[in-house]
């Protein structure tokens, strides 16, 4: 369960907003009560409900979204739904909720573990290594290879320490 973003509110966030702000987009997760305080009408679901039901993601119940157009390229939800082709890189962020189940059902994974462009810097490289190690750890545990699992756990520990040291520096 994801908690409502509002200060002091402990309700489950069922309204997920994507707002266009000056330097890109901002995501907010609110409960129904706090959302209606902000003037969001959750009883009138946005036009994505039909799309979501098509891609099998309608489990969110009261899920709604304000943004249906990518601020960078102008791609909109109806056209995305029709062609299943995105307009630009930012579309992946703007339409992330729509794409989540699609990507999961295509790849059975949510994390890239392949090549990282050198421009992404050390942290990206570490994140990728961490993902690979964690996957290997999962496999080792499943196959009851506990010695291997212990080695992998130590490697993950060391890597995490490196990552934190980099951030502090």
């Amino acid at each position: 369960m994801k908690q409502c973003d509002s200060d002091g509110c402990e309700n489950e966030a069922t309204v997920h907003l994507t707002k266009v702000v000056e330097d890109g987009i901002k995501k907010e997760h609110l409960c129904k009560v706090c959302a209606s305080k902000q003037g969001v009408d959750t009883d009138q679901p946005a036009d994505m409900s039909e799309f979501l039901s098509q891609v099998g993601a309608a489990s969110g119940g009261g899920t709604s979204s304000l943004v249906s157009t990518c601020p960078s390229c102008g791609m909109d939800r109806p056209r995305l739904k029709k062609s299943m082709r995105l307009g630009c890189g930012l579309c992946y962020e703007v339409f992330s909720e729509d794409l989540e189940t699609v990507i999961q059902s295509m790849h059975h994974s949510e994390q890239h573990v392949g090549k990282v462009p050198s421009s992404e810097g050390k942290q990206a490289q570490y994140t990728r290594e961490l993902a690979i190690l964690q996957e290997a750890l999962g496999t080792a545990v499943l196959q009851e290879q506990f010695e291997e699992a212990a080695t992998l756990r130590d490697k993950i520990k060391t890597l995490k320490a490196h990552m934190e040291a980099e951030v502090d520096a």
């Binding site: 995105l86 890239h112 392949g114 090549k115």
Partner: peptide
């Protein structure tokens, strides 16, 4: 610079190609 995301990897026109 490429279109790249830490979680999804290389971003592609069709979601069937994201990642590597």
């Amino acid at each position: 610079k490429y279109a790249y995301d830490m979680r999804l990897g290389y971003l592609t026109s069709c979601p069937s190609n994201v990642g590597t």
